[in-house]
Each structure stands twice: as structure tokens, then as C-alpha cells.
């Protein structure tokens, strides 16, 4: 089962923009290792920034895939730039806001911003920006062949689309 790092899509503007949220919970096992208590101090559970890049990649990847109704196999090919200024702790909500900058038959570039909601104050705060490149792997320059079925957009992605009221995008 593919690990999903977004919970729900909250905004969708066809061919242009997608926003998704992720609720960070202390029930997530990986937080207990990141970071566990040790000789240097007590436990410090924070959302790994590498997984926030993955969360943005899933948001932007679904957006790019939706342009061709998920017929293309959209693969994250390059993290052009990633800046995350602040740690996110359990109880907070992460918002990934991705926009397509440029797209053609070979792939797409996207720009995204990350905000975090602190439920104690009720306010969103901008904490990062991530620029990504996606490849349509069947159109790769080297002519490599891949399986015909679309292994990228699995049932998990479809479930999120359906639960976000966007199930018709993947029909």
C-alpha cells in the first residue's frame, strides 16, 4: 500500500491549481522515531521535512495527472528547490498549495507553498516553498518502456479524489 501524505483535497482549479491538507497526529508511528527520547534529551515528535516534500509532490502530482485525466504516468523527477522554515508538530494541519507553472507532453514544473494551521490560534502561517519537476515517463527521452497499466495513480489516490468530492476526475 502506498503511503499517502495528504488527507484531503480542499481546492481544485482545473489545469492550474490544487490545495490539499494533512493533519499531523501523534498516533502516526513514524513521529515516535522522529525524534525519540535519547541521551541528548526528551522525545521531540515533529513532521519530517522530507515527508512534507512528498506531501507537496503528491498534491502537485495529482494536479498534473488530472490534466490528462490520469492517463499519463506522472513521476516526480526533480526537486528543483525546497525551503521549509519551521517544524510542524502533532495537532497542527499542513496545507499544500500547488500550481502548474509549465506543462507539455514530456512533463511539468510546479510551484507550491506550504502553510501550517495552529489550532490554538486558528491562524495559518506560511512556512515554506517547494518547486518540483514531473516527468510523463512514457514520453521519456531514452525510449524506455514501462508497464501499460497506470501504477502511479493507485486506488489510494482515487480514494482521496472520491472523498474530496472529485471522483469524477478519475472516471
Amino acid at each position: 500500500m502506498r503511503w499517502m501524505w495528504i488527507d484531503q483535497i480542499t481546492t481544485f482549479e482545473a489545469n492550474r491549481r490544487m490545495v490539499a491538507v494533512k493533519n499531523v497526529s501523534l498516533a502516526e508511528e513514524h513521529l515516535h522515531q522522529h525524534f525519540a527520547a535519547g541521551p541528548d534529551g526528551p522525545a521531540c515528535p515533529v513532521m519530517p521535512m522530507s515527508l512534507m516534500i512528498e506531501g507537496m509532490a503528491q498534491t502537485a502530482g495529482v494536479l498534473v495527472g488530472s490534466v490528462n485525466r490520469f492517463r499519463e504516468k506522472v513521476i516526480l523527477a526533480k526537486v528543483n528547490d525546497a525551503r521549509i522554515d519551521r517544524e510542524v508538530i502533532p495537532g497542527q494541519t499542513i496545507r499544500y498549495d500547488a500550481t502548474i507553472e509549465r506543462m507539455d507532453a514530456a512533463g511539468a514544473s510546479t510551484m507550491g507553498v506550504i502553510d501550517v494551521l495552529d489550532h490554538r490560534t486558528g491562524s495559518w502561517q506560511r512556512i515554506g516553498e517547494i518547486s518540483l519537476m514531473f516527468s510523463h515517463i512514457d514520453a521519456n527521452r531514452s525510449g524506455l518502456q514501462f508497464p501499460e497499466h497506470n501504477f502511479v495513480f493507485s486506488d489510494n489516490f482515487r480514494l482521496i479524489l472520491e472523498q474530496s468530492g472529485l471522483g469524477s476526475l478519475a472516471d
Partner: peptide, 14 residues
Amino acid sequence: ESIDFLDITFRLDK
């Protein structure tokens, strides 16, 4: 690498 060529193309456009 191969994906960089697509990146370069997009950046030249811009």
C-alpha cells in the same frame, strides 16, 4: 541528466 533537459527548456521559456 535527462530530466534536466526538460527543466532547462522550461527555464529558457521563462
